[in-house]
Design a binder for these strands. Structure first.
Lengths: 257, 257
DNA sequence: TCAAAAGTGTTTGTGGTACACCCATGG
DNA sequence: CCATGGGTGTACCACAAACACTTTTGA
């Protein structure tokens, strides 16, 4: 498996190197400033933004391809990553855009024609710790930035739908698996965890009942330190008990919010 | 979109007609004789059985392709059908088998070569009413039969894994969405519904608590008739309240077993 | 010293679990 | 008339929801 250096090489050689007809798109969630963020790539010559995506090499595992894309766009290796849906509508591809794009690069008709085909795309969603990410655009985009979840416009093709489906899946997961390890720093406070949940769910929760529920899962370790510097009473710091966290991930939590 | 009549045509023209690199496989669940069944196709010249599968036409929607395959293999139109996972391991394809198979049909190297490629397959699972199904083999298999879920051997390639994953998903769904409308006849008894649940979950449930729980969902209509002919006390018949059933399908049930 | 946020505790009601009991039917 | 399975009801306990109170901090 070789790296593709230039755009031109990507376009001209892609047809030989990639598994045909399939792409993948990643919805990368991060949490910062008490807000849920999504990593998006700015496309050239338009106001459109796109989800980080990519193709699968001919002998590459699908999940490995997603991991690779995530690594390239964020710099992070061990990422929580999960496929959630396949988008296989034939009209999802924007072939006019694609052919314009090829024209712009003066690619001979034959070479880049693989890009003109319809693609079935597999949607993945990832949870990452905001501060560990180095947003990096790919070779066909001009910028990579975090966007506030509720402030996203002009998404490319059907990426709006992919994003919405990912969010739905994330909310679903909240009821059945522990969430937080991948989104929060190593040490965090109970109110911060609460805010994370409230942000994902889009509604207020009772902080006291939330605390009890969280504790009952047995995946938290209360530390002796407190968060300093903030106004008002200093909250205790917590960390996840990774052994129990992993176990809960596999077995599921059961419960509802 | 045209029908492919013969195997030869399928092999020789498939490369032009189908979306490349993608296939789909269906796990079709039925319920009969108080047992959970899966529809399998017998392959030629081996003891192997395979999940009903197929390919996606170039301009065909993915879900539509799955619906089409289901229709062809069962004769049923309105089927509960849901994608549950993409299997994208490059080593999942059995290329030796495939090339032997091509040799057997004396297909010139070029024509059938699309079949020698790796395929990423999308797994769908379906719930069907057993008695409505007419098992029909496809043009590359010799028989189509229902198999008892716990009595399945010799599955082709990674179809064992696909089946297991489907069952896992079905059990998962049981906790969050109503099940039964697609698996049971229009009129059924509470003990029958109970047995269905027990079969899927693989464990015994308390019939009295089960009844209460089911009633609390509000998706059942108790009829005035009773099932006759069986020994012992005659049980009441029920049917699903479709409006409320559909609503519960969308909104989810919440709860655990 | 006061507002705002964090930590701890209490009450109440719903619903899950584990049962006991009666009813109907065929042998 | 009795074994077997179907239908109805109840006691108990856990847990979730709603809410009150105390503690700590910075301005």
């Amino acid at each position: 498996m070789r790296a593709l250096k230039s755009i031109r090489e990507f376009i001209e050689e892609g047809g030989k190197l990639f598994h045909p007809g399939i792409s993948l798109d990643c919805v990368i969630f991060g949490f910062h400033d008490n807000q849920l963020k999504v990593l998006l790539l700015k496309m050239e010559h338009t106001d459109d933004w796109a989800l980080p995506g990519g193709f699968v090499y001919k002998e590459e595992d699908l999940e490995a391809a997603a991991t690779r894309v995530l690594q390239e766009r964020t710099g992070i290796n061990n990422i929580f990553l999960q496929q959630f849906h396949v988008f296989g509508n034939p009209s999802r591809s924007d072939r006019e855009y694609q052919s314009n794009w090829l024209r712009k690069w003066n690619i001979p008709a034959g070479k880049g024609s693989w890009l003109l085909n319809r693609f079935v795309t597999v949607g993945f969603y990832a949870l990452v710790e905001f501060s560990h990410v180095t947003p990096t655009p790919d070779n066909i985009s001009v910028a990579s930035e975090w966007h506030h979840l509720h402030n996203i416009d002009n998404l490319f093709m059907d990426h709006r739908k992919i994003l919405d489906t990912a969010l739905e899946t994330l909310r679903w997961q909240l009821n059945h698996q522990p969430i937080g390890y991948n989104l929060l720093p190593d040490k965090f406070t109970m109110p911060e965890l609460l805010t994370l949940y409230e942000t994902i769910l889009g509604k207020k929760l009772d902080r006291r009942n939330f605390r009890r529920r969280m504790n009952s899962y047995g995946i938290l370790r209360k530390l002796k330190e407190k968060r300093k510097g903030c106004a008002h009473k200093a909250p205790y710091l917590y960390s996840f008990d990774l052994r129990k966290y992993q176990k809960a991930l596999q077995e599921g939590l059961q419960g509802r919010w």
